[in-house]
Design a protein around this nucleic acid. Structure first.
Length: 1026
RNA sequence: GCUCGAGUGGUGGAAUUGGUAGACACGUUGGACUUAAAAUCCAAUGUCCAUUAGGACGUACGGGUUCAAGUCCCGUCUCGAGUACCA
């Protein structure tokens, strides 16, 4: 090779290097640019219309992000960037839901303060276990999101939770007025009580609050008054039966329990009575239900909320307990039941009470006492989970007592049975076996009569519950009536005789708000003589105290019980040492105004129930949770993207708090999230190696163990020994022909292989690494039999998780292919809302596309940048405009996967058209910018622009470029397409038919037959029938 | 059990109101370039039959409506998600 050649080669290489698509450099450059220029900082004042795009903020776990996490963020980012190009003032913030159990569990294990680990998890660093943590922020930044980080929130930041505490105080100071149907100031209720007692008050309140007059109210002691008020406040302290999880040492809300075990960790949960803060969300049941009609959420998640709220309309009916079996003290008392079928009241043949009810002991006759007590004992032992799992077994006991039917006055036997739940309705049912399958089964099992109240219905096999087909009979005044009329009349008659009233029941329970944990918001509450008092808002935040351990105390108090400085000095308004607290026994003479603070903390959903308002405020965060101007400007979230698993938690609680804040005039909106999209999960492809043990039959000692391919294993089952295995055996045992044994094999062994033992993103196992790994330890005596030195693992689709060893880290993808490739590939995988497997091997298609895109703009000599001012060809204009149309439609429909295909088609077409025209290539790069913002910025700059492409305007679709003069008609015979024929679009129906019939191919396919009919749909299709 | 959703090539998935099923990718195979590899490019790729021309079948299964069905209707099966004695 001559010197000249070498020189030209090296020059060529150098140029090549300059012009190549260097995604790492490009992406770093633009990420820096956006951060420095604050490109995505939203303004609270703008001429443009506003648009608020929000992601469910992440819990910053130590495990970091995997490729499944950013899916929703990418989708919302594409949308946010698109909306900017469409001329909107976009708010697209991000933050951290940074209080929570994992940090606390980690703190218990390692002794590190959860605030420290949380900070490391967000900002990166090394924890005291020596683990290097990239940090959420750095990981998110690498993907190139257009987040406005200047508005970041962290729920564990005292400046944030100050306002969570503030909202709690507002809830405490409010009650729910059913007459006005909104929350109101508790002071108004106090004045109402002082004026007229509580008889006229129609409020959401605890059950069993006695009626009192104004005089009585004014005569109550402060403690008595406060106790009554607690029964009305929207957050209240009450002894309730709670879900106690001993393993986590805390109570859990209903939505935190799945199948009777804790959602986190799967620990058993038991019922326990405890004094806890609760939220009176039940007051909002109807509004939470109605509000679903006006928001654009998926039907499935609305359905989840509807079920959770569980509205049922029916009647509350009183059954008098018969005197003869009752002692004189409980004479004339009643059993109340809730029923949705008052129309079937004449079908009642027994009543069933939940075994837990206290009433059971009172009414049980001496003869039945032993049986009833035994039954109660058995059911009490069964856990909630057993009871739920085992719904087939019918069990119960007769109390010996009878109730009286309100109309017929017949005696009705009272039973107890664990199919009746203490927690729903009144814990008692009027059993109508002919109309309810559970009652039916119970009646059959215990031989209780099953009277039929349905006309023309056979109930010998099962109960009849079809309301639409119901005609009532054997029911006195209800005879001959259909369901609806019968219900109405039954309620009317019940009300007339004072035995019942129409009632609507909700399944939605008040939400327990206390957690016996450290890492959560402290309550702004102290206790003066056992009465909970709110700390004045001006002294917030009440900051989490230091504790030496994050465990409950020996006395079983929550971790805050370990804090030494955790009492409230009402004189100096500060948190002081517990030593200053005087015991209440010492009386008021020694009262120094120092009282113990609440030891519980708030649950995870406290901070997340209002964070979307906090992002709106930037300037006045110290003064308000969000200023009126900011709230008025941004309104509610226009688009919310996140997982559907929060259906009965976060998404319901947020709606509740927003409605409350609206009632009290703090915000102007009634719903937090106008439109919501729930992204599907990205699944991982786990890898498995298949092993087998081969027993050589002449000796027990000759057992050889192998990892073989799945295919070889299947061959082995069919009696074929894989060649590789045979040659291995031959090496050890000599020529096959000399073998004096037979091969038997044991059932297959399946071993999980973590992805880091595979070569690159292939299925090829790195045999040496795997053999030296901890994983392989149990298989030390296994041989890895491979074909040509390559052992291929088998893949299975599973949830992506660290423990399954199938996580794919986005940082690595960004490193190897770039953030633009990652973003586009995540969108390309499939419909956003659908669960889909991640397959890293497929990423090359999208990466190649970006390279082709780059090349389209670098078609000059030595692949230099080459965009000309030549006018665009007709074909190129057509390609551009059909792309604009499709991409715009796709983004509006959240069909991001199809717009990626559209870009691929566009670039393929423009490349083959050799298009270099600015008129095409400039709008094209704007179209792509939301998906692949870094490469778009780089090309935009090369096109001569000084401002970020996010300032550009989305291209306008011009239909005139798509107008066609001809159509390639598919010509079908009996509906089956045989060939196509290009014809002018303005050709008339008759002409088309004539032309098609005259065509030689038509004659060939007809083969002499005479067509019965020819269907011509101009612009669409020709179908020849016959 | 109930509610909702989904079943399309070897794989991920397209097909907007019934109108050319399998777009766009991955993978595979063959080829070009290269000493070689990588990169890049070209071609083929639903299944079956046929040398070709071409033909038959084909969107979970069975029916139906229609000139025409992945799409609409009825029934069945499978998978996924949610929910679970809610009176």
């Amino acid at each position: 090779m001559t010197l000249l050649n070498l020189e030209s080669l090296s020059r060529k290489r150098k140029k090549h290097k300059i012009m190549k698509y260097h995604f790492n450099a490009i992406e770093a450059k633009w990420q820096k640019y956006w951060a420095e220029k604050g490109t995505f900082h939203a303004s609270n004042e703008s001429e443009k219309p506003k648009y608020y795009v929000l992601d469910m903020f992440p819990y910053p776990s130590g495990a970091g992000l995997h490729v499944g996490h950013p899916l929703g963020y990418i989708a919302s980012d594409v949308y946010a960037r698109y909306k900017r190009l469409k001329g909107f003032n976009v708010l697209h913030p991000q933050g951290y839901d940074s209080f929570g159990l994992p940090a606390e569990q980690y703190a218990i294990q390692t002794g590190q303060h959860p605030a420290v680990t949380t900070k490391v998890n967000i900002e990166g660093g090394v924890d005291n276990q020596g683990n290097t943590i990239a940090g959420y922020r750095a990981q998110l930044d690498k993907i190139g999101f257009s987040f406005d980080w200047s508005r970041e929130v962290r729920t564990s930041d005292p400046q944030y939770y100050k306002w969570t505490q503030w909202i709690f105080i507002q809830l405490f100071e409010s009650w729910y007025n059913y007459d006005t149907n909104k929350a109101e100031d508790i002071e108004d209720l106090v004045s109402a009580f002082a004026k007229a007692g509580n008889a006229q008050i129609n409020a959401a309140c605890d059950e069993g609050i006695a009626t009192f007059t104004a005089e009585e109210w004014n005569a109550f002691s402060e403690k008595e008054q406060q106790d009554i008020l607690l029964g009305y406040r929207l957050t209240y302290l009450a002894e309730t039966e709670v879900n106690w999880c001993p393993a986590l040492g805390t109570v859990l809300a209903n939505d935190e329990i799945v199948n009777g075990v804790s959602e986190r960790g799967g620990h058993p949960v038991v019922r326990k009575k405890m004094t806890q803060w609760s939220m009176r969300i039940s007051a909002y049941a109807e509004r939470l239900l109605q509000g679903l009609e006006n928001i654009d959420w998926s039907e499935s998640i609305k359905e989840v909320q509807r079920n959770w709220i569980g509205k049922s309309v029916g009647a509350q009916v009183k059954f008098k307990i018969k005197n003869d079996v009752r002692s004189s003290t409980v004479e004339n008392s009643f059993i109340e039941v809730f029923t949705t079928r008052p129309d079937t009241i004449f079908g009642v043949s027994f009543m069933t009470l939940a075994p837990e009810l206290d009433l059971v002991h009172e009414i049980t006759t001496p003869e039945q006492k032993a049986e009833v007590d035994a039954y109660i004992e058995v059911t009490a032992k069964r856990s909630e989970r057993d009871r739920m799992a085992d719904v087939k077994t019918i069990s119960g006991a007769f109390t010996g007592a009878y109730a009286e039917h309100p109309f017929t006055k017949e005696p009705i036997p009272i039973w107890i049975g664990d199919y009746v739940l203490a927690g729903y309705g009144t814990g008692a049912v009027m059993a109508v076996p002919c109309g309810d399958q559970r009652d039916y089964n119970f009646a059959k099992h215990f031989g209780i009569p099953i009277p039929n109240v349905f006309e023309g219905v056979d109930i010998s096999e099962e109960a009849f519950s079809d309301k639409a087909a119901t005609v009532i009979t054997n029911s006195d005044f209800l005879n001959g009536l259909k369901y609806k009329k019968a219900v109405k009349l039954a309620i009317y008659e019940l009300e007339k005789i004072g035995a019942g009233t129409g009632k609507t029941n909700y399944r939605l329970r008040d939400a327990v708000f206390s957690r016996q944990r450290y890492w959560g918001e402290p309550f702004p509450v102290y206790y003066k003589n056992g009465i909970p008092k709110m700390i004045d808002a001006q002294h917030l935040p009440i900051v989490l105290p230091e504790v030496e351990k994050y465990l409950p105390t020996e006395e079983g108090e929550p971790p805050l019980g370990r804090a030494d400085v955790w009492a409230w000095d009402t004189k100096n308004n500060k948190v002081v040492s517990n030593d200053l607290v005087r015991s209440s026994a010492v009386e008021n003479s020694e009262d120094n105004g120092v009282y113990p603070l609440e030891l519980n903390t708030m649950p995870g959903w406290a901070g997340s129930s209002w964070y979307f308002f906090r992002y709106m405020e930037k300037a006045k965060r110290d003064e308000v949770f969000a200023s009126k101007e900011a709230l008025d400007y941004w309104g509610n979230v226009d688009l919310y993207i996140g997982g559907s698993e929060h259906g009965t938690g976060h998404l319901l609680y947020s709606r509740f708090w927003v409605k409350f804040l609206k009632d009290r005039g703090f915000v102007g909106v009634d719903e937090p999230f106008q439109k919501m999209i729930n992204q599907g999960m990205i699944l991982g492809e786990s890898a498995f190696a298949y092993g087998c043990k081969i027993k050589l039959s002449d000796s027990e000692s000759k057992i050889e163990k192998f990892f073989i391919s799945k295919k070889d294993y299947e061959n082995l089952e069919n009696g074929e020994t894989p060649a590789e295995l045979e040659s291995w055996l031959e090496k050890k045992y000599g020529d096959k022909k000399q073998w004096d044994f037979e091969i038997n094999y044991d059932p297959r062994i399946k071993v999980r292989v973590f992805l880091n033992f595979l070569k690159g993103f292939t299925n090829e196992l790195n045999v040496e690494d795997f053999k030296n790994s901890e994983m392989f330890k149990h298989y030390k005596d296994f041989q890895v039999i491979s074909k040509d030195g390559i052992y291929l693992v088998e893949r299975e689709i599973e949830k992506m998780s660290k423990s399954k060893g199938n996580v794919v880290n986005p940082d690595e993808i960004c490193e190897q292919y770039g953030a633009d490739t990652l973003r586009m590939y995540e969108m390309f995988l499939g419909p956003l809302e659908q669960a889909k497997p991640w397959n890293t091997a497929g990423i090359s298609g999208v990466h190649n596309f970006l390279k082709k895109l780059w090349k389209l703009y670098h078609s000059g000599a030595d692949e230099s940048f080459n965009v000309t001012d030549e006018s665009a060809s007709k074909d190129s204009l057509k390609t551009l405009h059909k792309t604009i149309k499709k991409v715009e439609e796709d983004i509006e429909n959240f069909s991001f996967n199809t717009s990626v295909s559209t870009f691929m088609i566009a670039v393929n077409e423009l490349t083959s058209q050799k298009c270099t025209s600015r008129a095409i290539l400039e709008p094209l790069v704007i179209l792509i910018a939301p998906y692949a913002p870094h490469i778009a910025e780089e090309l935009w700059e090369k096109l001569g622009h000084n401002e970020s492409i996010s300032e550009a305007v989305f291209p306008i679709f011009d239909a005139s470029h798509l107008v066609e003069s001809t159509k390639n008609y598919p010509i079908s015979f009996n509906g089956k397409m045989k060939f196509t024929l290009e014809l002018p679009l303005d050709m008339s129906k008759d002409e088309i038919e004539k032309t098609v019939m005259a065509h030689e191919k038509t004659q060939m396919y007809l083969n002499g037959r005479e067509p019965k009919k020819v269907i011509v749909v101009p612009g669409k299709i020709v179908n020849i029938v016959g």
